[in-house]
Amino acid sequence: MNQAAVRLRSVTRSYGKGSSAVTALDNVSLDIPRGTFTAVMGPSGSGKSTFLQCTAGLDRPTAGQVFLGETDLSGLSEKKLTLLRRDRIGFVFQAFNLLPSLTAAQNVALPLRLAGRRPGRSDVLDVLEKVGLRERAGHRPGELSGGQQQRVALARALVTRPEVLFGDEPTGALDTTTGREVLTLLREMVDRGQTVVMVTHDPVAASFADRVLFLTDGRVHGELLAPTAEQVAAHMTGLAALPC
């Protein structure tokens, strides 16, 4: 087995107090091996977003521990946690979040500039080439298609060489064909050693992953390995039929 890129140990996240408290994650323990593609699915309100936020260091669990490699995130100050997210984690969201006044290359270089590092042009062009957009380096977002903008966002997430890339519905705003192109790109990156964790509602998107984790009521309710879209859809239908 690959060494774990991320480990969760008895992670619980609750909001509110007393009788109005809501438990979004309930005692979740699991490992995400390095160099694998994990999809996270579940009904609305199942805890997917909270899982992503706690795992990526965007939110702190109420109880339990999250490890990135050997680093225990619960022991970090807010400043150190911010630096860890900047240097060791990449994010891709449904919204592309590109700055319209900057070129593709400038958008990709932005995380390095914000970290006080001078981005090498060759490094920026290399990561744009990985997503198939080296020739569009000088174009602004308004001159790119939605799929191209998401690939620029993907390049921006990868330029810091993150240990783990987290995606929150990264193909949610794309049409079917363009979405598959982005998913194929993610799959190729995993096959080259990148670790990807993606929240999605789409069984086809999940079928690109090595493993699908299913959440319901804040707990892991099964998983599929080497899934097909049909298997994922059937499992989701089963979750929807569970008693509340």
Rank of each mutant, 00 (worst) to 15 (best):
L81K: 12
Q106W: 05
R136T: 06
D87I: 10
L76N: 07
L110K: 05
G132D: 00
G116T: 07
S122R: 12
L81P: 13
L128E: 04
F96A: 11
L83V: 15
N107T: 08
H139G: 05
L110Q: 03
T82H: 08
D123T: 12
R121V: 07
P111K: 09
G120M: 04
R113G: 02
A115V: 07
A109E: 07
N97V: 12
R113I: 14
A137T: 09
R121M: 07
L102C: 07
N107Q: 08
F91A: 14
L98N: 01
R88N: 11
G90C: 11
L128A: 05
D123W: 01
D126Q: 05
V92P: 12
A109S: 15
F93H: 05
V92Q: 06
L102V: 00
E129I: 04
R121D: 09
L84F: 14
R121P: 04
Q94P: 00
L81Y: 08
Q106V: 11
L114A: 09
G75D: 13
L81D: 06
G90F: 13
L99M: 14
E129N: 11
T103V: 02
G132Q: 04
T103F: 00
P119M: 02
A109T: 11
A104P: 07
A115H: 13
V108R: 08
L112H: 03
K79V: 14
F93R: 12
G75W: 00
F96V: 13
A109N: 03
G75S: 01
R88T: 10
P119T: 09
L133W: 00
